[in-house]
Computed example of a mutant assay.
Amino acid sequence: MNNSIEKAMNQIGTASSSSEGAAPTVNPLSLDAVDRKLASAQVSSNRRKTGFFVDLDLKILSEKGFITPDDPRSQIAEEYRRIKRPLLKRALDRSLPADEHNNLILVTSALAGEGKTFTAINLAMSIVMEYDHTVLLIDADMIKPELSRIFNIREKSGLVEVLMESSVDLADVMVRTNIANLRVVGSGRPHPLSTEMLASYQMAALANNIAKRYPERIIIIDSSPLLATSQSSVLAHLVGQVVLVVESGRTPQTAVKEAVSHLDETKSVWMIMNKGKRPWGSSYYGKLSNNYNYS
């Protein structure tokens, strides 16, 4: 049992255990039925492809607490150096089966507002600043695409268009940035079949393709909270590693247990305690074992 996780779960147990709302039932989606729905959906064929460049304002990002190349020795930058090490070790371990897709990392949370998008962006920033690997950051939160908002690409084509239009390749919607080796794909335009799209054959094929086509690239997927929609649990089956963000002192232990129950037990699941007041140098990070005792 990992001591840091045991301490984290004890802290979670002291938070309010009041009901946060019942989690939606996750029903298996028939790929055949989903693909028929997608085939019947009408999307404008003359939609403009949007591979382009965005100049990020590093000063504003830094003021909002994000890691930037301008301040590589900040406290939060040091924290994420520790956070990324085990993730990268597994992602780049060539002794593991390639079909595990360990270079695909899903970032999610139990509830909304726990800092999953903040974590996904900072994890990406930390990796591109110190490693000679391109990081692809994908916004797969179709309900509240916060990542797309932060990068100012909400009105641009993105993941939705790749899944809906056979003529649109991921490269067509990939956004280059003024941070070397950082690429971003937005969620795309809102669509009523977003959950079905993420559970479709097209999404599974896309995940398999990007994992194998770019084995040296780290793909970080920002998804919706596990207890808010079924989208994250669907995506979790396609990736090799899952990062579960938990807000210190707020997220009830029952919510964490419920969130973990939505994940595949065979996956490598990690937890980050966010927004906690801890002494400098203490650990925020650990691994949830599949047989973890939550009592």
Rank of each mutant, 00 (worst) to 15 (best):
N10G: 13
V128R: 06
S40I: 09
L29Q: 10
V243F: 07
N10S: 14
L31M: 14
S4E: 15
V260E: 06
L137S: 04
I143F: 15
N152D: 11
Y131H: 10
A124K: 03
R73I: 15
F52Q: 13
L227Q: 03
R217D: 01
D57E: 09
R250A: 15
I138L: 04
H101G: 06
G186W: 03
S17M: 11
I153H: 02
A77D: 06
H133I: 13
G115F: 05
A236R: 05
T266V: 14
V173L: 04
V256I: 10
R85T: 14
E79K: 12
V43M: 11
D141H: 02
R189Q: 11
L193E: 04
S248V: 10
Y285Q: 11
K144Y: 05
S268K: 14
A199L: 04
E161S: 01
T134S: 11
R73Q: 15
R278P: 12
R217I: 00
W270L: 09
I105F: 04
L238T: 01
A205G: 07
Q253L: 15
L88Q: 06
N290I: 14
L159T: 00
T251D: 04
S232L: 02
V245A: 03
D35Y: 07
N293T: 10
A259S: 03
L137H: 01
R149T: 15
V246C: 08
G249Q: 05
I219E: 05
R94H: 14
V242K: 01
E6N: 15
A204S: 14
R189K: 13
R48F: 10
A205Q: 08
A211N: 00
K7W: 11
V246N: 07
L147E: 02
R81A: 02
P72T: 07
R278A: 14
D55R: 04
I5S: 10
Y131D: 11
L123A: 01
S17R: 13
Y80K: 08
N152M: 10
L163T: 00
F151M: 00
R81I: 02
H101C: 08
V260W: 07
L61Y: 05
D55L: 03
L56N: 03
L88M: 08
L244R: 06
N46D: 15
T251W: 02
I76F: 07
